[in-house]
Design a protein around this nucleic acid. Structure first.
Lengths: 341, 341
DNA sequence: ATAATCAACTTAAACGGTTAAGTTGATAAA
DNA sequence: TTTATCAACTTAACCGTTTAAGTTGATTAT
């Protein structure tokens, strides 16, 4: 393997010192350079195909232009931590935005035997963005580490983390309100267990608010709580099938559950939206592929990823000061799974 | 921001030289150390919470334990380059496997203004794994760069790249054969355009082989070629609806197309599998969410990701020598979208 | 004419590790 | 007793950058 070309080679080729090469390449304006020298250096750079070694640069600068992204990994889902389309779409948008600004992304699943503060230190990560819900001591540790962080969709108020998220209560309210406006009165909700607290809890709260605003009393058996996955949706379908004239619409707190519900309902001969209407949440690409396509709350994942990137980079470049919070607006996208009643 | 603790601090704390610290930490066996010193050093490491700075280590060692993953980004799909569940599941598995072996993953979308050979050089990537199809000169450039590479699902035979892939021809054959065995004779295929050549071409070849083996002549209008997405599936449905007694089953070269087809067919009142059977390809998580759930070719994406990780790491650690090729076995998973006729 | 200023560089220390080569004192071999 | 060997370190060069602090020769101010 032939030796990499370094700044020395460029310096020699251009007939200047390595410091000069560094100055012309970085062009920070702190140093006056003659046009002629600049030209000679750039010519040498191109000729030799020189690419600076970021490890050396990081060492000297203490700045890596690397952002870590931590993605949750559930016990049951070890190898597919981000097979959830939410993560993919988020990550994709984040990476795209970051790359445009000269940053790279280092992804890492959550994992007991490797803590990401260590990773952050080891790899000189400039900052990290965290998805998912973590135990209190983990968050404390992150906070103590002083590494610039932005947390996505978290409701931990006591820490002064920077956040980007959704107004989930309002979103839940909006979803339910929409159902109400379509004439539904018997509305069930299926949502995530308390483990993924935060967002789901808020969405349920919005649901409750909308209901009580319309003078509808909250029935406990109308709220189904389980794991956020396709299977749980199917499971709920079985339950709802047993009391089908007691519910006319159901609001699922995640599209994937809505799809499970849809499939389950189908099995019991219950038609959507004729017999039961379904409102989803997320609007990842899967929401449009079902029959009927899901009417759902678009939480603008792509924008969320973009804002996350911009926020962490803004903080790192010190353009953003103080605690940052950004709420990504939601909107409802009407498709085929809800009918007027 | 307080200063990071470095090897010097550990050395001072333990009362030894930094070289000694380095030796005990790396424990390569090239150096004899007293048990007592080892203990003292480790104690200092823990006490000070020392984490080695990988940038410095990379600089000294010329080894980063970082693997780059290049993911295609289509023009129309800029911000969602890996919203395709194939990429997510693959990446997820790759990352998981790599992490277990002490490597990290740096992801990067394909992008005109940043070429990944430069990224690889800059970031001292030990190797890269490449997904998707690229122009010849790109591949040549990669080859010339001498960076250890494994390419996924590529049929570029002339370069001696390491590969992990699927026997797509056999897979196409298997899928079609299955349909044949279920009694279907009028089988259409919907597949990707020549842009994503390789895999699709092979799958079509397998389809043709199976057909001719059964003495069925290939009808040109039975092969639909377009972009690999949901919309194209819907589009094909429209066409097939017009000639519905001319086809009794259709093999889609990707699940996402199959789902589009399914939805489209539904619109025209054509039932699946009663009127038309559908065979998918991929078995990402979306294949089980439709009604009916897709019978499909499982290409074992998770294993593919794992093998990719193991291959690149094996090459880097010199346990694997010479050109490597691994074919991930496929299997058919029977669900609800095909009926016997 | 002399000093001060300045453009356009160069020198060298520093970043935080690794590692070949050197040191030292104790033990074994001759 | 002298010499060789060896365990257990330490010293210092090196990896490829950045950057504060020189240096130098020309120009400007006094």
């Amino acid at each position: 393997m032939m030796k990499r070309v370094g700044i020395k080679d460029v310096a020699k080729e251009a007939g200047v010192s390595i410091a000069t090469v560094s100055y012309v390449i970085n062009n920070k304006g702190g140093q006056t350079l003659s046009e002629e020298t600049k030209e000679r250096v750039w010519k040498a750079v191109n000729q030799l195909n020189y690419v600076p070694n970021l490890s050396a640069r990081i060492l000297a600068n203490n700045k890596s232009n690397l952002i870590g992204v931590v993605i949750p990994q559930t016990e049951t889902d070890k190898e597919f931590m981000f097979s959830n389309p939410f993560y993919s779409e988020f990550l994709s948008s984040l990476e795209y935005t970051a790359r445009k600004k000269g940053y790279h992304i280092l992804i890492s699943g959550t994992n007991a035997d490797e803590n990401y503060i260590e990773v952050a230190k080891k790899r000189n990560l400039d900052g990290i963005v965290i998805l998912g819900v973590y135990p209190k001591d983990t968050l404390e540790e992150i906070q103590n580490s002083k590494i610039p962080t932005v947390i996505i969709d978290s409701y931990i108020k006591s820490y002064h983390f920077n956040t980007v998220g959704t107004d989930d209560c309002y979103a839940g309210y909006t979803a339910t309100k929409y159902l109400l406006e379509k004439g539904h009165r018997k509305i069930a909700i299926v949502t995530g267990s308390t483990l993924e607290k935060g967002v789901n809890q808020e969405r349920v709260r919005g649901y409750e608010d909308a209901l009580s605003e319309s003078g509808i009393s909250l029935e406990k058996r109308n709220v189904y709580t389980g794991t956020v996955d396709f299977e749980y949706g199917e499971e709920v379908a079985e339950q709802i099938a047993k009391r089908k004239d007691e519910v006319t619409a159901v609001f699922c707190t995640a599209d994937i559950m809505a799809l499970g519900l849809l499939k389950g309902l189908n099995k019991y001969g219950i038609r959507v939206p004729e017999d039961i209407s379904i409102m989803g949440f997320d609007n990842t690409f899967i929401s449009k592929i079902s029959t009927p396509a899901l009417t759902t709350i678009d939480q603008n994942i792509s924008i969320k990823g973009e804002r996350a990137a911009k926020m962490i980079i803004g903080i790192l470049s010190e353009q953003l000061k103080g605690k940052q919070d950004y709420i990504v607006p939601i909107e409802i996208v009407e498709r085929e799974s809800i009918r007027e009643v």
